[in-house]
C-alpha cells in the first residue's frame, strides 16, 4: 500500500493519530489543521491560518463545553447547564469576533436579503382581511399566507397570524364595534367554541363562520371557485398563482388537467359539481347552529367563541 500509515500493522494497531498538534484521541477532534484547508478549498475564507493558535484554543474550549453540557444533562445536573450555556455562548462570540478580525474588512455587513419588491405597506390585519375577503370563508394561517404570496407577492409570517386573533379580541373587548371589522374566530357547530387555527371576518354572517363536519370541504371548494374566478378576471396568472391554483385543483376530482397546469374554468366547474353534493346539508347545519348560538351567546362570544363547558360536559 502506498498510503501513509502511522499505525502498526499487527492485529491490534494503535489508533491512528491524524492531528498534528494534539496527541489525545479521547478528546473530540476539532476543526483544525486539515480543516482550515477545507474551508479554504471551498472558497469560504482564505486567510484563516494566521490566527490559528488562538482560534484553536477557542475551538477546544467550545467543543469541551459542548461535552460538558451533555454530561451535565446526562447526569441530571440541570442546574449547571445555564452557566455552561452562557460560557459556550461567550466562547462562540469570541470566536465569531476572531473570525471577523481575520476576515478583515466588513464586506459582510450588508443586510442579507432586501425586502421583497412586492412587499405591501398595508398593516398585516388589512392584508389578512384582503385575503379572507378574496376566499370568502374562514381559513388557516398557512392558506392565508400562501394566497397572499400568490396574489399580492408579499410575505406574511404565519406565526404572527396566530397572535393576531388575540389582539383583535382584546381590542373588541375594550371598545366593541369601534372598528369597521375584526379578524375573529370560526365557531364549531356543536359547542360554539373557537375552531383551532381558523381566522374569519366579523362582518360575515354567523352562518358563514360556523364550522360543521362538511364545512371545511365546502369552504375549500368555494374558496377554489373564488380564486379561480379572480384569476379569470385579472387574466394571465404568474407562476406562483398557477402553482396555488394547481394545488387546489389536484384535490378536486376532475379539476386538474395535466401535471402542473389547471385552467380556472375547469376548476370552477369541478368544484361546483362537488359543492352541489355537500352544500344543502352543510348550509342547514350551519344555519341551525348559528340560530341557536345567536340566542345563547353574547357579542364577544359570537365573535371569538364560547368557553368550553367542561363542568357540564363531565356531568353528563
Amino acid at each position: 500500500m502506498t498510503r501513509h500509515r502511522t499505525g502498526s500493522t499487527g492485529g491490534h494497531p494503535e489508533p491512528l493519530l491524524f492531528r498534528r498538534d494534539r496527541t489525545s484521541v479521547t478528546k473530540s477532534p476539532s476543526l483544525k489543521g486539515s480543516c482550515w484547508q477545507i474551508l479554504e478549498s471551498s472558497g469560504e475564507c482564505a486567510s484563516f491560518c494566521r490566527m490559528a493558535e488562538t482560534m484553536d484554543e477557542l475551538e477546544d474550549l467550545i467543543s469541551g463545553l459542548r461535552v460538558q453540557i451533555r454530561r451535565a444533562l446526562a447526569n441530571g445536573q440541570r442546574a449547571e447547564v445555564p452557566k455552561l450555556r452562557a460560557e459556550l455562548h461567550a466562547a462562540e462570540q469570541r470566536w465569531d469576533t476572531g473570525l471577523q478580525e481575520i476576515e478583515g474588512s466588513d464586506t459582510g455587513q450588508a443586510p442579507l436579503a432586501p425586502l421583497p419588491s412586492g412587499a405591501s405597506l398595508l398593516p398585516m390585519r388589512e392584508q389578512v382581511h384582503q385575503v379572507l375577503t378574496l376566499l370568502g370563508a374562514p381559513a388557516a394561517p398557512k392558506l392565508i399566507v400562501a394566497v397572499h404570496e400568490a396574489f399580492n407577492g408579499g410575505e406574511l409570517v404565519s406565526a404572527k397570524l396566530t397572535s393576531l386573533r388575540r389582539d383583535e379580541e382584546r381590542s373588541f373587548r375594550s371598545a366593541p364595534f369601534a372598528r369597521p371589522y375584526y379578524l375573529c374566530s370560526a365557531l364549531a357547530v356543536d359547542q360554539w367554541v373557537s375552531v383551532r387555527g381558523l381566522l374569519a371576518v366579523s362582518t360575515w354572517s354567523l352562518d358563514r363562520r360556523m364550522i360543521g363536519p362538511l364545512s371545511p370541504r365546502v369552504d375549500f371548494l368555494s374558496g377554489a371557485i373564488r380564486l379561480a374566478q379572480h384569476v379569470e378576471r385579472t387574466g394571465d396568472p404568474g407562476p406562483q398563482t398557477s402553482r396555488l391554483l394547481w394545488r387546489f385543483a389536484t384535490n378536486i376530482p376532475g379539476a386538474a388537467e395535466s401535471f402542473g397546469s389547471a385552467r380556472p374554468a375547469a376548476i370552477i366547474a369541478a368544484a361546483r359539481a362537488e359543492l352541489e353534493v355537500h352544500d344543502a346539508a352543510d348550509r342547514a347545519q350551519r344555519k341551525a347552529a348559528a340560530e341557536a348560538a345567536r340566542r345563547r351567546l353574547d357579542d364577544v362570544q359570537q365573535l371569538f367563541g364560547a368557553q368550553p363547558l367542561r363542568a357540564v360536559r363531565s356531568a353528563d
Binding site: 484521541v25 473530540s28 477532534p29 474551508l39 466588513d106
Partner: peptide, 25 residues
C-alpha cells in the same frame, strides 16, 4: 447580514466536523 451568516456557517461547520471526524478516523 452576510457576515452573521458566515459566522453561523463556520460554527455549524465546526460542530458538524466534530460529529464526523471521529468516524472518519
Amino acid at each position: 447580514t452576510e457576515l452573521a451568516r458566515r459566522q453561523v456557517l463556520h460554527r455549524l461547520t465546526g460542530m458538524l466536523v466534530e460529529q464526523m471526524r471521529p468516524t472518519w478516523d
